[in-house]
Design a protein around this nucleic acid. Structure first.
Length: 268
DNA sequence: CGGGGTTCCTGGCCGC
DNA sequence: TGCGGCCAGGAACCCC
Protein backbone atom coordinates (compact mmCIF):
# COMPACT_ATOMS: atom_id res chain seq x y z
CA UNK A 1 0.00 0.00 0.00
CA UNK A 2 2.08 2.85 -1.29
CA UNK A 3 2.13 5.88 0.98
CA UNK A 4 4.29 9.01 0.84
CA UNK A 5 7.66 7.21 1.28
CA UNK A 6 6.90 4.66 -1.42
CA UNK A 7 5.61 7.29 -3.85
CA UNK A 8 8.61 9.51 -3.13
CA UNK A 9 10.97 6.60 -3.76
CA UNK A 10 9.37 6.06 -7.16
CA UNK A 11 9.33 9.80 -7.89
CA UNK A 12 13.06 10.18 -7.31
CA UNK A 13 13.85 7.38 -9.74
CA UNK A 14 11.46 8.61 -12.42
CA UNK A 15 12.80 12.14 -12.04
CA UNK A 16 16.15 10.77 -13.19
CA UNK A 17 14.71 9.07 -16.23
CA UNK A 18 11.63 10.77 -17.60
CA UNK A 19 12.36 14.49 -18.15
CA UNK A 20 13.02 15.07 -21.83
CA UNK A 21 11.74 11.67 -22.96
CA UNK A 22 8.73 11.62 -25.26
CA UNK A 23 5.99 9.04 -25.68
CA UNK A 24 6.28 7.10 -28.89
CA UNK A 25 3.16 5.04 -28.25
CA UNK A 26 0.95 4.18 -25.32
CA UNK A 27 -2.06 2.21 -24.27
CA UNK A 28 -4.34 1.59 -21.32
CA UNK A 29 -6.93 -0.68 -19.79
CA UNK A 30 -10.45 0.21 -20.94
CA UNK A 31 -11.59 1.25 -17.48
CA UNK A 32 -12.23 4.95 -17.03
CA UNK A 33 -9.74 4.83 -14.15
CA UNK A 34 -6.87 4.08 -16.54
CA UNK A 35 -7.97 5.09 -20.04
CA UNK A 36 -6.78 8.72 -19.77
CA UNK A 37 -3.19 7.43 -19.78
CA UNK A 38 -3.56 6.69 -23.48
CA UNK A 39 -4.08 10.36 -24.36
CA UNK A 40 -0.46 11.43 -24.04
CA UNK A 41 0.95 9.95 -27.25
CA UNK A 42 3.61 12.25 -28.66
CA UNK A 43 3.86 14.27 -25.45
CA UNK A 44 7.20 14.95 -23.81
CA UNK A 45 7.79 14.49 -20.10
CA UNK A 46 9.07 17.34 -17.95
CA UNK A 47 9.45 17.42 -14.16
CA UNK A 48 8.21 14.58 -11.97
CA UNK A 49 6.61 15.94 -8.82
CA UNK A 50 4.69 14.53 -5.88
CA UNK A 51 1.85 15.78 -3.69
CA UNK A 52 0.90 13.47 -0.87
CA UNK A 53 0.48 10.05 -2.44
CA UNK A 54 -0.08 11.50 -5.92
CA UNK A 55 2.62 11.49 -8.58
CA UNK A 56 2.38 14.46 -10.93
CA UNK A 57 4.27 13.86 -14.14
CA UNK A 58 4.40 17.17 -15.95
CA UNK A 59 4.12 17.24 -19.73
CA UNK A 60 5.60 19.95 -21.91
CA UNK A 61 2.17 20.64 -23.42
CA UNK A 62 0.91 22.04 -20.12
CA UNK A 63 -0.85 18.95 -18.89
CA UNK A 64 -0.15 16.71 -15.89
CA UNK A 65 -0.24 12.94 -15.93
CA UNK A 66 -1.59 12.26 -12.44
CA UNK A 67 -0.91 8.83 -10.97
CA UNK A 68 -2.37 7.39 -7.78
CA UNK A 69 -1.04 3.92 -7.00
CA UNK A 70 -3.98 2.85 -4.84
CA UNK A 71 -3.39 -0.35 -2.93
CA UNK A 72 -1.34 -2.48 -5.26
CA UNK A 73 -0.08 -0.11 -7.94
CA UNK A 74 3.50 0.17 -9.12
CA UNK A 75 4.99 2.41 -11.77
CA UNK A 76 8.32 2.17 -13.48
CA UNK A 77 10.57 0.19 -15.72
CA UNK A 78 9.24 -3.05 -14.39
CA UNK A 79 10.77 -6.37 -15.31
CA UNK A 80 9.14 -8.00 -18.28
CA UNK A 81 9.40 -11.40 -19.79
CA UNK A 82 9.70 -11.55 -23.55
CA UNK A 83 9.33 -15.29 -23.50
CA UNK A 84 6.51 -15.52 -20.98
CA UNK A 85 2.88 -14.47 -21.37
CA UNK A 86 2.24 -10.74 -21.08
CA UNK A 87 1.69 -9.49 -17.55
CA UNK A 88 -2.12 -9.35 -17.21
CA UNK A 89 -1.94 -6.69 -14.50
CA UNK A 90 -0.30 -3.96 -16.56
CA UNK A 91 -3.09 -1.38 -16.74
CA UNK A 92 -1.21 1.22 -18.78
CA UNK A 93 2.10 1.56 -20.66
CA UNK A 94 4.10 4.26 -22.36
CA UNK A 95 6.81 3.39 -24.90
CA UNK A 96 9.51 6.05 -24.74
CA UNK A 97 11.63 7.45 -27.53
CA UNK A 98 14.68 5.66 -26.12
CA UNK A 99 13.00 2.30 -26.59
CA UNK A 100 12.19 1.62 -22.97
CA UNK A 101 8.64 1.18 -21.71
CA UNK A 102 7.19 2.73 -18.59
CA UNK A 103 4.47 0.54 -17.10
CA UNK A 104 1.69 0.97 -14.57
CA UNK A 105 0.86 -2.35 -12.92
CA UNK A 106 -2.07 -2.69 -10.52
CA UNK A 107 -3.49 -6.05 -9.49
CA UNK A 108 -6.51 -4.81 -7.53
CA UNK A 109 -7.26 -1.81 -9.73
CA UNK A 110 -7.61 0.60 -6.82
CA UNK A 111 -5.19 2.93 -8.56
CA UNK A 112 -6.12 5.76 -10.85
CA UNK A 113 -4.61 7.68 -13.77
CA UNK A 114 -5.74 11.09 -14.95
CA UNK A 115 -4.53 13.63 -17.48
CA UNK A 116 -5.51 17.20 -16.67
CA UNK A 117 -4.49 20.74 -17.45
CA UNK A 118 -1.80 21.61 -14.92
CA UNK A 119 -3.39 22.37 -11.57
CA UNK A 120 -6.95 21.59 -12.69
CA UNK A 121 -7.66 18.94 -10.11
CA UNK A 122 -11.42 19.34 -9.80
CA UNK A 123 -11.88 15.74 -10.92
CA UNK A 124 -9.60 14.57 -8.10
CA UNK A 125 -11.22 16.03 -4.97
CA UNK A 126 -8.71 14.61 -2.50
CA UNK A 127 -5.81 16.09 -4.43
CA UNK A 128 -7.63 19.40 -4.84
CA UNK A 129 -8.18 19.66 -1.08
CA UNK A 130 -4.89 18.09 -0.02
CA UNK A 131 -3.35 19.32 3.22
CA UNK A 132 0.24 20.47 3.72
CA UNK A 133 3.22 18.30 2.88
CA UNK A 134 4.69 16.80 6.07
CA UNK A 135 8.12 18.29 5.43
CA UNK A 136 6.86 21.74 4.52
CA UNK A 137 8.37 24.05 7.12
CA UNK A 138 5.20 26.11 7.01
CA UNK A 139 3.48 23.16 8.70
CA UNK A 140 3.99 23.98 12.36
CA UNK A 141 2.95 22.15 15.51
CA UNK A 142 0.56 25.00 16.20
CA UNK A 143 -1.00 24.69 12.76
CA UNK A 144 -1.20 20.92 12.99
CA UNK A 145 -2.82 21.17 16.42
CA UNK A 146 -5.33 23.70 15.12
CA UNK A 147 -6.21 21.50 12.17
CA UNK A 148 -6.84 18.53 14.44
CA UNK A 149 -9.01 20.66 16.70
CA UNK A 150 -11.02 21.63 13.66
CA UNK A 151 -12.42 18.14 13.18
CA UNK A 152 -14.49 15.84 15.37
CA UNK A 153 -13.18 12.68 13.74
CA UNK A 154 -10.91 10.24 15.55
CA UNK A 155 -7.30 11.41 15.41
CA UNK A 156 -6.20 8.53 13.21
CA UNK A 157 -9.11 9.02 10.82
CA UNK A 158 -8.26 12.71 10.60
CA UNK A 159 -4.60 11.95 9.84
CA UNK A 160 -5.61 9.44 7.15
CA UNK A 161 -8.02 11.94 5.62
CA UNK A 162 -5.27 13.82 3.69
CA UNK A 163 -6.63 17.26 4.63
CA UNK A 164 -4.74 17.77 7.87
CA UNK A 165 -1.50 16.42 6.48
CA UNK A 166 -0.74 14.87 3.10
CA UNK A 167 0.58 11.43 2.28
CA UNK A 168 -0.01 9.38 5.44
CA UNK A 169 -1.60 5.93 5.09
CA UNK A 170 -2.39 3.14 7.48
CA UNK A 171 1.10 1.77 8.03
CA UNK A 172 2.90 5.01 8.81
CA UNK A 173 -0.09 6.27 10.81
CA UNK A 174 0.07 3.31 13.19
CA UNK A 175 3.84 3.69 13.47
CA UNK A 176 3.62 7.41 14.24
CA UNK A 177 0.82 7.13 16.80
CA UNK A 178 2.76 4.39 18.56
CA UNK A 179 5.98 6.35 18.55
CA UNK A 180 4.26 9.51 19.79
CA UNK A 181 2.36 7.65 22.50
CA UNK A 182 -0.96 9.00 21.23
CA UNK A 183 -4.23 7.04 21.25
CA UNK A 184 -5.43 6.78 17.64
CA UNK A 185 -9.07 6.38 18.74
CA UNK A 186 -9.15 9.69 20.64
CA UNK A 187 -10.91 12.71 19.17
CA UNK A 188 -9.05 15.43 21.00
CA UNK A 189 -5.36 16.02 21.52
CA UNK A 190 -3.46 18.53 23.65
CA UNK A 191 -0.71 20.71 22.32
CA UNK A 192 2.16 18.50 23.60
CA UNK A 193 0.58 15.43 22.04
CA UNK A 194 0.13 17.24 18.73
CA UNK A 195 3.77 18.22 18.78
CA UNK A 196 4.88 14.66 19.47
CA UNK A 197 2.56 13.28 16.79
CA UNK A 198 3.79 15.68 14.12
CA UNK A 199 7.40 14.94 15.03
CA UNK A 200 6.70 11.20 14.89
CA UNK A 201 4.92 11.44 11.55
CA UNK A 202 7.86 13.29 10.08
CA UNK A 203 10.31 10.80 11.55
CA UNK A 204 8.59 7.64 10.35
CA UNK A 205 8.01 9.09 6.88
CA UNK A 206 11.63 10.22 6.61
CA UNK A 207 12.89 6.83 7.74
CA UNK A 208 10.55 5.15 5.29
CA UNK A 209 12.09 7.15 2.45
CA UNK A 210 15.61 6.40 3.66
CA UNK A 211 14.85 2.68 3.61
CA UNK A 212 13.26 2.66 0.18
CA UNK A 213 9.69 2.19 1.37
CA UNK A 214 7.78 -0.64 3.03
CA UNK A 215 7.20 -3.79 0.99
CA UNK A 216 4.71 -6.03 2.78
CA UNK A 217 3.48 -7.76 -0.32
CA UNK A 218 2.80 -5.67 -3.38
CA UNK A 219 4.91 -2.53 -3.23
CA UNK A 220 7.74 -2.36 -5.75
CA UNK A 221 9.98 0.56 -6.65
CA UNK A 222 10.39 1.91 -10.18
CA UNK A 223 12.84 -0.86 -11.04
CA UNK A 224 10.75 -3.67 -9.60
CA UNK A 225 12.75 -3.94 -6.38
CA UNK A 226 11.52 -4.11 -2.78
CA UNK A 227 11.99 -1.63 0.04
CA UNK A 228 13.45 -2.61 3.40
CA UNK A 229 11.40 -0.54 5.84
CA UNK A 230 9.11 -3.48 6.62
CA UNK A 231 11.89 -4.85 8.84
CA UNK A 232 11.74 -1.73 11.01
CA UNK A 233 8.03 -1.58 11.85
CA UNK A 234 7.32 -1.36 15.58
CA UNK A 235 3.53 -1.44 15.51
CA UNK A 236 1.73 -2.03 12.21
CA UNK A 237 0.96 -5.71 11.75
CA UNK A 238 2.21 -6.59 15.25
CA UNK A 239 -1.13 -7.06 17.02
CA UNK A 240 -0.81 -9.65 19.81
CA UNK A 241 2.96 -9.25 19.96
CA UNK A 242 4.86 -7.48 22.76
CA UNK A 243 5.17 -3.70 22.71
CA UNK A 244 8.83 -2.82 22.23
CA UNK A 245 8.47 0.07 24.64
CA UNK A 246 6.61 -1.38 27.65
CA UNK A 247 6.49 -5.11 27.00
CA UNK A 248 2.70 -5.21 27.13
CA UNK A 249 0.61 -6.79 24.39
CA UNK A 250 -0.21 -4.72 21.32
CA UNK A 251 -3.92 -4.63 20.50
CA UNK A 252 -5.43 -4.96 17.06
CA UNK A 253 -8.88 -3.59 16.32
CA UNK A 254 -10.84 -1.96 13.53
CA UNK A 255 -11.27 1.81 13.83
CA UNK A 256 -13.58 3.49 11.34
CA UNK A 257 -13.07 0.53 9.04
CA UNK A 258 -9.28 0.48 9.21
CA UNK A 259 -7.19 -2.16 10.89
CA UNK A 260 -5.38 -0.47 13.76
CA UNK A 261 -2.66 -1.71 16.08
CA UNK A 262 -1.78 0.23 19.23
CA UNK A 263 -0.43 -0.25 22.72
CA UNK A 264 -3.15 0.09 25.40
CA UNK A 265 -0.50 1.11 27.92
CA UNK A 266 1.71 3.51 26.00
CA UNK A 267 -0.98 5.18 23.91
CA UNK A 268 -3.60 6.84 26.09
C1' DC B 1 -19.77 21.26 4.76
C1' DG B 2 -18.20 17.44 7.29
C1' DG B 3 -18.70 12.86 9.06
C1' DG B 4 -19.73 8.28 8.05
C1' DG B 5 -21.11 4.37 5.20
C1' DT B 6 -20.58 1.92 0.71
C1' DT B 7 -18.15 0.46 -3.26
C1' DC B 8 -14.52 -0.82 -6.14
C1' DC B 9 -11.06 -5.18 -6.89
C1' DT B 10 -8.52 -9.79 -6.57
C1' DG B 11 -4.81 -12.71 -4.55
C1' DG B 12 -3.71 -14.85 -0.38
C1' DC B 13 -4.93 -17.15 3.55
C1' DC B 14 -7.79 -19.91 6.71
C1' DG B 15 -10.57 -23.71 7.97
C1' DC B 16 -13.09 -27.76 6.96
C1' DT C 1 -6.71 -31.57 -1.98
C1' DG C 2 -10.20 -28.40 -3.15
C1' DC C 3 -12.98 -24.75 -2.27
C1' DG C 4 -16.02 -21.30 -0.09
C1' DG C 5 -15.53 -17.35 2.66
C1' DC C 6 -13.17 -13.59 4.36
C1' DC C 7 -9.70 -9.94 4.50
C1' DA C 8 -6.79 -5.83 3.03
C1' DG C 9 -7.81 -0.62 2.34
C1' DG C 10 -7.45 4.75 -0.45
C1' DA C 11 -10.39 7.49 -2.43
C1' DA C 12 -14.60 8.45 -5.09
C1' DC C 13 -19.15 8.76 -4.25
C1' DC C 14 -23.50 9.21 -1.86
C1' DC C 15 -26.45 10.45 1.98
C1' DC C 16 -27.81 12.99 5.98
Amino acid sequence: MPELPEVETIRRRLAEELPGRSVRSCGAHASEKFRPAATVRGARFAAVRRRGKYLLVELHDGRDLVVHLGMTGSLGFLPTGDTVPADPYVRAWWELDDGRTLRFRDVRRFGRLAVVERGAYDGLPTLAALGPEPFDEELTAAGFHAALRGTRARLKTAVLGQRVIAGVGNIYADEAFWRAGVNPAARRLGRPGAERLLDALRAVLQEGIEHGGTTLRDYRDADGGSGTNQHRLDCYGRGGLPCRRCGGTLRRRVLDGRSTVSCPTCQR
